[in-house]
Design a binder for these strands. Sequence first.
DNA 1: ACCGCATATGTAGTTTGACGATATATGTAG
DNA 2: CTACATATATCGTCAAACTACATATGCGGT
Lengths: 110, 110
Amino acid sequence: MQEPTLLLLTALADAPRHGYALIQEVAAISDGRVKMRTGTLYGALDRLLQQGLIEVAAEEVVDGRARRTYALTAGGRAALAAEAGRLRAVASEAERRLSVVLSRVRGTFA
Amino acid sequence: MQEPTLLLLTALADAPRHGYALIQEVAAISDGRVKMRTGTLYGALDRLLQQGLIEVAAEEVVDGRARRTYALTAGGRAALAAEAGRLRAVASEAERRLSVVLSRVRGTFA
DNA sequence: ACCGCATATGTAGTTTGACGATATATGTAG
DNA sequence: CTACATATATCGTCAAACTACATATGCGGT
């Protein structure tokens, strides 16, 4: 799972949202770092729908435009929780290893 | 940056290592979950060399076989630290959001 | 009235990166 | 003498993300 996908699932974790709102939510979560294009978004949404990680929660028509609202499925919540745990573990290990080298350089043997 | 790449940089974070050793180190870090094939490994190493995140620290010949030892560059250390921090932030946010929904369902308003 | 921006969804083509399969070569254990 | 661990490397494929483009409405400014 890549970062854009992870951010999408995270953006859906607390509430269902529609496509355009997801782009903004992803930007907010990543502190403006990730600006998803619609191509990435809708491709990813199609994929996640197929994988059963998200589902269409509502389909309304607002101002003559269809608005589809997506939500995490139980599987999606589980997948996100697992992925978050794994990434946290790897990130911690990376930081631990980096600090090991630093203390070795400083000669502190932490 | 994808997980295999992240794991590679993590595997190099505390000490320089050669290719084959990296495959095993990555497996150890990921608790046996990620078993890198050589195709993935050497492709990734080439890419990371080109990006300047790693460098060839030593080239010896052991038993008639060349053995190339790779090490993180300063840029590689910085990139890994940044990536680890980012991922930890996203992972935390994902877990926070998931727990928000859970407490809402339970009616605890945590 | 018209321009541009935010809102909103979608398709097409390209590139990137990971993956599987395969190849080569030596040392060691059974 | 076979099979496995060590060790490096290439090739073809596939999945996912990215860029660019296309379409459409509402609203604020000039």
